[in-house]
Computed example of a mutant assay.
Amino acid sequence: MPTELEELVGFIAHPNPQIRLAAAENLVPYSTAEPAIFKAEELKPVKNLKLLVKDHPKIAKHVLTILVNVSGDPEVLNEMVKDDKFLELVFQYIVNPEEPNANLLAMLLANLAKWDGIKSVLQRKQQAPEALGSDDVVLNQLMDLFVKGQDGAYNKNADFDYLAYVFADLAKHAEIRQYFVNPQPYDGVIPLTKLKVFTEHKSDVRRKGVASTIKNVAFDVQSHPSFLSAGGIDILPYVLLPITGSEEYEVDDAMAMLPDLQLLPPDKRRDPDSTVVQTHVETLTLLTTTREGRELMREVRVYPIVRETHLRVDDGAVREACERLVQVLMRDEEEPDANAKGRVQEIEGAEDDEIVEV
């Protein structure tokens, strides 16, 4: 005999929409408390839930919440990401400016992006809504959603902050790193330059995801000249400002610092999230891979900023990251850098792999 809970799970496929709504709403708590119930009968509940994403928005809201919460399970994740029609549906719905559950779709994509095969999004195409002003490349549409959709500007029901986590995971793949550092034909803009402006955004999720994206793209050493060029990505001001406070920096020539870091207001605060600070320091360390990168950082007086960050952020991981960077900046260029490979391996091990839950 099926238990009450098993019967409740069965009701999500009921032909009566009111019963489906009640079942989905009541099942939401179990998606975190007892997620295994959704794997019964060879994942039949998950298969039903995927279909219900197209249901009435009130039902779809609970369905998507459940899918977000159970997608941390490898079997459930595999069931969703191998279903091309389901992925197509997710991408079609999220770009709709009237979609009431767009933020939940963004959260779901953030978890689906943990699957290595999600890099196939680079080849995906679909027609973009006219209001989005994008081309038919799905990845460009997600980027424009993130940029134009902050604070409900594109869709009053969504801020699309969780797409930052999607970009961070996508940037772990070498081929997609190339997307982030090259101008796109439809607007001539380098995608990473669209993201860098959010390193000091009010949203913790947006800041954290963007910081991780920048760091992961920075593993592409060939793109470092563009990272450091004022005419390219020009990333240094956007990585240094979040780790900079209002304290006065003891430098021999304050005018040598980047213009954006001179004469900061007295209420300037460094990012309150120590993991974000750590990520930015690790990005700076990656950008010391080339001699040009190291010399530029010395020239614009990065060391005093890192020194103050080390002193003022009470976090062991941040201090270790600062110490690794300082060792590089203070090293004589004539000395062999025997620890370069080790630094990169340490930074790779620090990537964020958390699963989103609602």
Score class of each variant (00 low, 15 high):
V81R: 15
V81W: 13
K82N: 14
K82E: 14
D83F: 06
D84H: 10
D84F: 06
F86M: 12
L87M: 13
L87I: 15
L89S: 08
L89E: 10
F91R: 05
Q92M: 06
P100E: 02
N103W: 02
N103A: 06
L104F: 11
L104E: 10
L105H: 03
L105M: 05
A106I: 05
A106K: 07
L108A: 09
L109R: 02
A110D: 12
N111W: 12
K114S: 15
K114Y: 12
K114C: 11
G117K: 09
K119T: 12
S120P: 08
L122E: 13
L122P: 05
K125P: 04
A128P: 03
G133P: 00
L139D: 05
L142G: 03
L142C: 11
M143R: 09
F146S: 02
F146M: 01
G149N: 00
Q150D: 05
Q150K: 04
D151N: 08
N157G: 03
A158W: 00
A158G: 00
A158K: 00
D159Y: 02
Y162P: 06
A164C: 06
A164D: 07
Y165N: 13
Y165V: 04
F167I: 05
A168Y: 13
D169L: 14
D169Q: 14
L170D: 06
L170A: 07
K172E: 14
H173V: 10
I176S: 11
R177W: 09
F180I: 08
V181F: 06
N182W: 03
P183A: 07
P183V: 09
P185Y: 13
P185S: 14
Y186E: 14
Y186K: 11
Y186V: 08
I190L: 08
P191Y: 09
L192Q: 05
T193G: 11
K194H: 07
L195T: 09
L195C: 12
K196E: 11
K196G: 09
V197H: 04
F198S: 08
F198E: 04
E200R: 13
S203H: 12
D204Y: 15
V205G: 12
K208M: 14
K208L: 14
K208F: 15
